[in-house]
């Protein structure tokens, strides 16, 4: 058996296009999923009807396969008369999926806030909203940041299954290339390498974000370095 990457490499514009779409898909789902997940975590913490609804959402998503969620949304929305592009459905379903996991991670971060911190905020006259903003959210996020970051990288890798509804992301591009070149092994080796590269890009992005968001980490690390 001999390797021949040349015909596969020739298709680099397809790979690049796919990689960019995968990245786009991941960024959209990460940002939207983070907002939804954080809102759900706050609702879960507050309890009540809204908290109950969020609980059902989180459990429903965490206990069903991603592919099934994608099919449900793709064919479900279509049967309701919403004919959305595969890319839009892929973004939506990945957002809904990662939102549930984010909710669970952020809830853990919020719950780990010592009660005394909240009491101190109340005693200084801060309103509920101000306590959430200044005392709860940022430290909670800092606490669970590594889990959040790896959840979002996982999401990027999992976005490969949206090729099943022919969203034109990286895996779909590779599928096309291997059927055109008859070089499946080379194609998928290259595909795996590209996913590794995308993971590194995301991890670097999260490290840069942490650098900006959490000055304390930066400072204390510098102090000890």
């Amino acid at each position: 058996m001999s390797f021949d990457f040349s015909s596969v490499f020739d298709q680099w514009p397809l790979f690049l296009h796919g990689a960019l779409l995968t990245l786009e898909l991941s960024v959209v789902a990460t940002v939207a999923g983070f907002v939804i997940g954080t809102a759900c975590a706050l609702a879960l913490r507050a309890g009540g009807v809204l908290g109950g609804i969020c609980q059902v959402y989180v459990e429903a998503i965490r206990n069903t396969p991603l592919l099934v969620q994608i099919f449900l949304m793709y064919f479900g929305l279509a049967s309701l008369g919403f004919h959305l592009s595969a890319f839009v459905v892929a973004s939506l379903s990945l957002t809904v999926n990662v939102g549930a996991y984010t909710a669970e991670i952020m809830r853990a971060g919020l719950e780990a806030t010592p009660a005394g911190q909240i009491e101190a905020g109340e005693c200084l006259g801060l309103s509920h909203v101000q306590i959430y903003r200044h005392v709860l959210l940022l430290p909670a996020m800092e606490r669970v940041y590594p889990s959040l970051a790896s959840q979002f990288v996982l999401l990027m890798l999992a976005s490969s299954v949206t090729s099943q509804i022919s969203a034109e992301e990286l895996t779909a591009a590779a599928n096309y290339v291997q059927s055109a070149t008859f070089r499946p092994f080379e194609t998928f080796i290259l595909l795996a390498a590209l996913y590794v590269a995308l993971s590194l890009v995301m991890r670097l992005g999260f490290a840069a974000l942490a650098f900006v968001l959490f000055p304390r980490r930066r400072r204390l690390r510098m102090a000890t370095a």
């Binding site: 010592p114 005394g116 911190q117 009491e119 101190a120 905020g121 005693c123 200084l124 006259g125 801060l126 309103s127 101000q130 200044h134 005392v135 940022l138 430290p139 800092e142 959490f214 304390r216």
Partner: peptide, 26 residues
């Protein structure tokens, strides 16, 4: 004003930010 046994400073803020938070926010 109340001060507790366990200080309850906000760990993610500097000493100065701990002190300025409530006057600025409230």
């Amino acid at each position: 004003g109340i001060v507790f046994q366990s200080y309850n400073l906000f760990p993610h803020l500097t000493v100065e930010q701990n002190v300025t938070l409530a006057p600025m926010a409230v």
